[in-house]
């Protein structure tokens, strides 16, 4: 299975496309419906997430984009009244299958939230918590290595390497968010889900996270929910627009923001949404 990518501008100018024409599918959602009690929150969603790509989910509040994101690592399981129907596969494996260990799944599909939420522990302990409970590392040397690599990948190592024993909550907001990303990375996930990771950060901290997202897509598949359309435009290769529980349109990011096909997308991105 592969996602066909359109890149009209490149085709028209005859230049080689900036990205390969096809990328393997990491996550596939087929006919996904989600209900919160009687409320039909997501309606027949079909969506492919390409491997080692950033896919942005945009849409007005309550459109279902966060609900969809939370389906991808079964975070919705924790909500009693929530019912998920349809098929979601990770590497072609049904993640809602009975044989799936949800804890293992969440190690493969990590998550970063809107508000930085480091544990009330040291920076070091924040990072090693996941690897310890998953049994990925036991010796001090192994843990040290994981801490350094994770913090380096999250672009935080140089800022905190001399104060790893200090509480994670003592960092600035932007640093805390990068700590949370480092914590997600520490268990070697394949996919990172980000739910408005920059909405609580200032523009400089936001720029650091965006730069980080750009680097992380070398190694990880990233799905990001954002209300900031410029951010979606800057960091993602594919963008999906959600509206009233439907996935209205998905396409190459540059196409969605310069020439969307659907009137509702056009209205939303240009600020005409009523």
């Amino acid at each position: 299975m592969s996602v066909q990518l359109r890149s009209q501008i490149n085709e028209a100018s005859g230049r080689a496309p900036a990205r390969s024409a096809t990328v393997p599918v990491k996550i596939a959602a087929e006919n996904v419906n989600v209900y919160y009690g009687p409320k039909h929150a997501l309606k027949a969603i079909n969506l492919m997430i390409g491997e080692k790509q950033v896919t942005a989910l945009i849409g007005p509040s309550g459109c279902g984009k966060s609900t969809f994101l939370r389906c991808l690592n079964r975070m919705n399981d924790t909500i009693g009244i929530c019912r998920v129907e349809g098929l979601i596969t990770l590497d072609r494996e049904n993640i809602y299958d009975k044989s799936i260990d949800v804890v293992q799944l969440r190690a493969r599909v990590g998550m970063v939230f809107q508000k930085p939420n480091p544990f009330p522990k040291s920076i070091f302990d924040n990072i090693v918590y996941g690897p310890r409970i998953h049994g990925l590392a036991t010796t001090r040397d192994e843990l040290d290595e994981i801490v350094q690599i994770s913090l380096e990948r999250a672009g935080l190592w140089s800022e905190v390497k001399d104060r790893l024993r200090e509480p994670g909550t003592g960092l600035s907001g932007g640093q805390q968010q990068r700590l949370c990303i480092a914590r997600a990375i520490a268990v070697s996930p394949e996919v990172i889900l980000m739910d408005e990771p920059c909405s609580a950060l200032d523009p400089i901290a936001t720029a650091h996270i965006e730069e980080l997202i750009d680097e992380l897509r070398e190694n990880y598949t990233i799905v990001i929910v954002t209300h900031n359309m410029q951010q979606a435009a800057r960091v993602s290769q594919r963008t999906a627009f959600f509206h009233l529980g439907e996935m209205v349109e998905i396409g190459d990011t540059e196409e969605i923001f310069t020439n969307p096909r659907d009137e509702r997308t056009q209205g939303y991105i240009t600020g005409r949404y009523g």
Binding site: M229, Q230, F257, T258, N259, T265, Q266, I269, T270
Partner: peptide, 9 residues
């Protein structure tokens, strides 16, 4: 305004 879509065009 950071225009998008048809506004940008």
């Amino acid at each position: 305004r950071q225009p998008m879509g048809l506004d940008l065009r």
